[in-house]
Write a protein that binds this DNA or RNA. Sequence first.
DNA 1: GATGAATGAGCGTTCATTCAT
DNA 2: GATGAATGAACGCTCATTCAT
Lengths: 194, 194, 194, 194
Amino acid sequence: MKKDKPKYRQIIDAAVIVIAENGYHQAQVSKIAKQAGVADGTIYLYFKNKEDILISLFQEKMGAFIEKMEEKLEGKKSAAEKLLLMIDMHFQMLSKDRHLAIVTQLELRQSNKDLRLKINEVLKGYLHVVDNILIEGRDSGEFSEDLDIRLARQMIFGTMDETVTTWVMNEQKYDLTALAEPVQKLLINGCEKR
Amino acid sequence: MKKDKPKYRQIIDAAVIVIAENGYHQAQVSKIAKQAGVADGTIYLYFKNKEDILISLFQEKMGAFIEKMEEKLEGKKSAAEKLLLMIDMHFQMLSKDRHLAIVTQLELRQSNKDLRLKINEVLKGYLHVVDNILIEGRDSGEFSEDLDIRLARQMIFGTMDETVTTWVMNEQKYDLTALAEPVQKLLINGCEKR
Amino acid sequence: MKKDKPKYRQIIDAAVIVIAENGYHQAQVSKIAKQAGVADGTIYLYFKNKEDILISLFQEKMGAFIEKMEEKLEGKKSAAEKLLLMIDMHFQMLSKDRHLAIVTQLELRQSNKDLRLKINEVLKGYLHVVDNILIEGRDSGEFSEDLDIRLARQMIFGTMDETVTTWVMNEQKYDLTALAEPVQKLLINGCEKR
Amino acid sequence: MKKDKPKYRQIIDAAVIVIAENGYHQAQVSKIAKQAGVADGTIYLYFKNKEDILISLFQEKMGAFIEKMEEKLEGKKSAAEKLLLMIDMHFQMLSKDRHLAIVTQLELRQSNKDLRLKINEVLKGYLHVVDNILIEGRDSGEFSEDLDIRLARQMIFGTMDETVTTWVMNEQKYDLTALAEPVQKLLINGCEKR
DNA sequence: GATGAATGAGCGTTCATTCAT
DNA sequence: GATGAATGAACGCTCATTCAT
């Protein structure tokens, strides 16, 4: 399996660094190869084409993240707790790897529609995690019984995404993880005075 | 003033159509010129360069939208009503112009960081509209008194954006405007049962 | 006659200034028109095309110069005196008009072969002046009897031209006219000790 | 070293031919690549840009020429002999390569000021050769003791250049090398009868 | 005569991908 | 498996010239 050979990860990690430091459109294959310490041609022994590097990058990082999250979520009882854990892990993952944050929030979005459709495919795993939390919360009576799962999921995703993107655009100047709890509260309670 | 001449709008409208139908990276200047019914060189009598077309496009469409919205908002009393009006107008604008929806939600995001920074500049006007609604709601006692304006704004923006993008990615198959009210309710009440 | 209308000279003078200040390749017709205070299209009422402006420029400036020189040369007796007068007038003309010097020595040479052939056509008048001085000197016994007129003319032209070009390239920092006499002596006596 | 690879010379030689046959402004990179038998992109593995081809062309041809000349000059005793050798070699180099003659005398002069400044830089090596001959001649008593080296150099350069340019403009119809001796005599003796 | 908006042909350069070694 | 030299398609922009007013 190619994915288990050291050069596979080497190239993906190089791609994250090169894209974060140079921007998507200045991340030429030759630069990634140089950063990875391999020849240009070697890239094509491990990836079908440049797009394949980016999809694989997303799959590797996001796949590992979702797996880890599902594990941890089992330890939590209420939907509210699960939601908080998810937001917190999401913010922590991106806080820890500033390169990855830039790549996922800014650079990878410059890819064309095709690539983004494939990225969405990967995101479906994440989506199911959110849906499960929401369904669980609705069925247990924690959340409103007529909660529209799809809309609620879009609110949760959209809010987290906007929060992280704003943080990246502000050059990661403040502590993102501190926002996990207030964001969770906001998502659960909404704006209204209670 | 160049902006008042018919060819200015002609070119911008052509750009929206060409970008929506061909994608950002396949929207060559010559294609836009052809669609607008002018010569390639004519473009440069009205715009500094290709990027300038895109910025102007965004300014024209968004600027007009924000203006119209501010006018209409004056007629509403409560913050909740204003929020609903804003979401509804936002969804209606993009529902009415399917090309514009594709361009703002998918294609324009492929632009480089520079262009996106300029787009964000334009968006600041929208941001103020949201902030004003939130502040008003908080001060009037409608919304929670310790509402974090910045976070709430990110939730509102993020949710609307995610909702529209999902709709566009699903090829605009369902009625987006029907979602305005449920989205507003969700933003105000959150997920929790009350 | 178009040449007698004020706009004809106006445009030529504008061309000299624009070319000297912006360089040959940055001397667009629209810039020349603006400098001349006329509309772009007006240029084409007085000149066939852009090349025609440059040829006319050269004809006007050089034609007037040659005429004036021929007049003055009549007052001189010896070929040596005539040679000195010619060199002196040549250096003075270009010393007085720094823009013209830049245009003839540097910028106009960037024109294509066709234009330069036409410029050479204009220069033939000058050439005859030199040839006449040389023939007169040879026949009067002042100059060597087996002087190769063509070679001698090339030496004189070449030396004057190189001297002026070097002066222009050195940003006209020293007094060119002071070189007229030493140059004439050098051309007459050569390098050898006598 | 890129300069030692065969394609480096191949491209330079192709540039000489293409420029000579099509003119400076019609010498597109794609034409040069085709003539050299390489792909367009290959040019950019050996040269920074189009201008770099032209500078390198000049450096290669002129650099080699000056080196060869300095070697041969050592075998000559008197300044007069050295001057003759230099003129002869200059005329022979350009006589042997008709394409190169066209390029250096006509086409390369159409380049912009930047390129010509770089060409002048290369010419400084040649300039030193001439200066050395003149100084030697003056110090040995062969040439006039109050010879102005700078002016004399301008005369020699100017005369050679004008002679070659006239020959090229006359489509190289006569034997240029036959003019080496008469030109040398003229430069040493001047016009005057002795 | 004068205007100036409109035209449209033309080209240097980049970079993902290949393939002989 | 690994290399890296070679490939060649693709495009934004300029500016001399025209012509309807």
